[in-house]
Structures are given as C-alpha cells and as structure tokens.
Amino acid sequence: MTEYTYDVTDVAASAGPTPSQTVGPFFHMALPYDAGPAVVGPERPGALTLHGYVYDGEGAGVPDALVEVWQADEEGAFCGTPGVYEEPDATGFRGFGRSATDEHGHYAFTTVRPGAVPTTDGAAQAPHLAMSVFARGMLRRVVTRVYFAPDDADPLLAAVDEDRRATLLATRDEGGYRFDVRLQGPDETVFLDVFAR
C-alpha cells in the first residue's frame, strides 16, 4: 500500500475545474437507461447498428465499461430538443446515446450515419461521431471519433500516422458498422484530448 504522506493542512482548494474520477464498478444502478442505446428511433430511414467491443491491454473484453456517443443528424445538424432519457419517436433523432458493455465487453447503439460538420474555422471534416468510454480502472474517460469511411482530406485523419488511422474507422458488417475500442497495446485506438480545462 502506498501511504500518501504530504501535508494536508496547509493547502486550500483553489478555484478551478473539478478533477475527474473513475466511474467505478457500480454505475449500472444509476447511469444506463432503457432508451440509452437509441440515438435514433428504430424506424428512422437509414437506421443502423453501431456496435463493437471494448478491449483491455491483454485483449480481454471490458465487461464494466460505459460507452457514450454524440453526433449530428444526416444533414449535419445537432439535436436541440431537450431530453435524453425518453425513448425517441419511431423516426426521431436524439443525437446522444449511452450503452453499458455486457459481460463480453460488447456495446451497441441504433443510429444513423451523421452528415459532415465542419471545424469552428469552417474547415471540412469527414462524417464522424464523438465517443467516450468510462470504466473502473480509468480515472478519466477516453475520447475518440468514429469515422465511417477513410478520407485523407479530413484534418484529424490526415494528422494520424497512417498505420493507426484504421483504429478510427468503423467497418461495415451485417446490419451496420462495427467499431472496437482498444484501450492499450500495439493496436491501441487513437484517443483524443478534447477536455475543456
């Protein structure tokens, strides 16, 4: 056991952002909700399954991860309608999704391919969605992007070493797209620093 023996009496908390802590192993009692995996309603044209596995550094599925996504709709517009917990209408669009992994580390969402959205500078980007993964053993979340097709003109994809680009690409499979998250190792997913601090 490490004893943390600094002086705890003299230092006051300073004003500033609150630090991150792990989501821990017991979030299932609070965070997952029935409509969580439904980024869109089931009858929305183009609805597809985006699914995959979260793997640890030994290639084992992470059975207690929480995966969240946020994305634009097919036209590149973001949902401004309040509410995430309620089931979207049959053809509705929510934009946000939350899926806890199962005992094999598998997550799944029902969603659509988003339209392209630019950077704040107006530069074009290939269609993508944003993904967070939280888990026990992760003191902070990891963030990545899920792209649906290679695009050398995308500023992020272009900035990633060629041999790692595939980690940001979902691959077609029956019913939709598969995107695996590898937290560590030679095939580690490219993770992003988007943390507003």
């Binding site: 550094g57 992760m138 500023p155 990633v160 937290l183 560590q184 190792g185 992003l192």
Partner: peptide
C-alpha cells in the same frame, strides 16, 4: 491494463 500508452491527439 486499462490505460492508453500512447499520447493523446488534439483534434481540430
């Protein structure tokens, strides 16, 4: 086993 080992990338 759950910590990324590579540097984070700052996206546009």
């Amino acid at each position: 086993l759950r910590s990324p080992g590579k540097a984070l990338l700052v996206p546009p």
